[in-house]
Amino acid sequence: MEKIFALITAIALCSALSTAVLAHHSFAMFDQAIKVEFTGVVGEVQWTNPHVWIMVDVPQDDGTAIRWGVEFTSKVHLTRRGFSPDLFSLGDKVTFSVSPYADGSPGGRFFWAQLDNGTYYCDGGARSVCEEKN
């Protein structure tokens, strides 16, 4: 019983902590255990609250493209971390790593991005990636 309670408390705590970055909804819709990488062309930049979004068109073998949505935290948090609205521009080629949507929708929560010039930008949880690569 104690173990169950500890587990429940741990889950509750995780849940509470998980609000720390996204805030207006939890991380539950993302599969945090997995990271997916993809390269595409920036098709839309939404520098907004409650979340910043970059829509990326990922080319397919048949010549078409699938639009992926990358969800960042709020522009408030990103501004404080040194991101700026002109970091991603329409037409830029960018590689992203995300925690994908659990339901398989093309998109996910931002983990890191590598710009075409090789520079990495990272979410708080991916700080070590940026420290290693940049």
Partner: peptide, 11 residues
């Protein structure tokens, strides 16, 4: 009460 991905990219 579960958050859904945005409509334009939702499966």
């Amino acid at each position: 009460g579960q958050t859904l991905p945005p409509e334009e990219i939702r499966n």
